[in-house]
Design a protein around this nucleic acid. Structure first.
Lengths: 189, 189
DNA sequence: GGCTGATAGTTAGCGGCCTAACCAATTCTT
DNA sequence: AAGAATTGGTTAGGCCGCTAACTATCAGCC
């Protein structure tokens, strides 16, 4: 399931050569793009491996984290019903509701979440963490956080700040592209 | 299919707060980690959307690119049989052979690649691009390269170099972790 | 020549991602 | 109050990852 379908990134000379054939190919942009995908993949796969050793998928783990976070913070803030709805979960996890149905199905089957009908709006369901899920998170989260620290350990504090700054520039531009794709892409060409 | 299952990244204060509860959580590492996943996702999704408009998936596109590259370069270098084997493709694309079988199945069904038996070793297949695939790539690659340029346009040349340098540090460390996970993780703790 | 083991490719089955289509319940409109 | 539009959740079917098990072919060794 990697994002980047290449084992060995092309050398810069190859990109230069390819840019002769395709004038649209900007070698330094291409290089940065490929390295970004590669790095994202690499750290993703590292954490996924860790999650798999705890017998959970990245998707299901994400749902548990969302529930843990929103339970802790919003319950105190005066929410009437506990947990979250599948629609909220899907929205926050950036997947479709259909996908969330499947994730919740499997989490429920494994006894990590519970589905209960909302009392006020009978269309809605409330998804809540079970005690078992809390135990599970308590046990595996330290290792997960440790791994994130280890993965980022080669960078100093100031390097991390620089990295975040550069990545933010890309993300902000990309998300503005997503809203008006045709015009922006055309104007740059 | 995002790598990062969170719509809104947590603010730094939240990470600080969480680090009180979990001493293993290094807020700046966590922040860098999340931003890296987010940025990788964002550019990946942007290109995927572009590929989908050309009615091809990222996985299949990767296979076509591998074939296009290895045809051009290795045919001249004195390879006896044209194309690549499924095993070579799977290895280079970082997926299993079973996955590659499926990808080639669909590409063959769509008339973009051909499967022929190797004459020397009857266990092997040779996968080749069809003329239709060459046409297809000619038509859609300029837009793909253009999009990569656009996505990286917010960064200057020197910023791109810095980004690549930082990402390389992470990747090199991560891949060394992958070979000896237990010891390295332990020693850093 | 005929075992044994390694290698290439496929198949079967599962998880998780998607879209499209579908009901049930709510809300808006008139 | 009754029909229309919206919203929440699920289902069905497809693609694409994976592992495990299988067949066919090749290579080595007695």
């Amino acid at each position: 399931m990697p994002h980047l379908f290449i084992k060995d990134l092309p050398r810069y000379e190859c990109l230069l050569k390819a840019s002769k054939q395709f004038p649209e190919l900007d070698p330094s942009a291409c290089e940065a793009f490929l390295h970004l995908l590669r790095a994202g993949d690499e750290v993703f796969l590292a954490t996924e491996q860790n999650l798999n050793e705890n017998s959970i998928s990245h998707g299901r783990f994400g749902v548990l984290m969302l529930l843990a976070q929103n339970c802790d913070e919003d319950c105190g803030a005066g929410r009437e019903s506990p947990g979250m709805t599948p629609a909220e979960l899907a929205d926050n996890a950036r997947v479709t509701r259909a996908t969330m149905t499947g994730l919740v199905d499997n989490l429920e089957r494994d006894g990590l979440v519970s589905r209960t009908a909302d009392t006020h709006d009978r269309r809605m369901m409330r998804i809540c963490l079970t005690p078992r899920a809390h135990e599970f998170l308590e046990k595996m989260l330290p290792g997960h956080f440790q791994l994130m620290s280890t993965l980022m350990s080669p960078l100093s504090e100031s390097e991390r700040k620089t990295l975040v700054k550069l990545l933010n520039k890309i993300v902000q531009h990309a998300s503005s592209l997503a809203k008006a794709p045709a015009e922006t892409a055309g104007s740059v060409a």
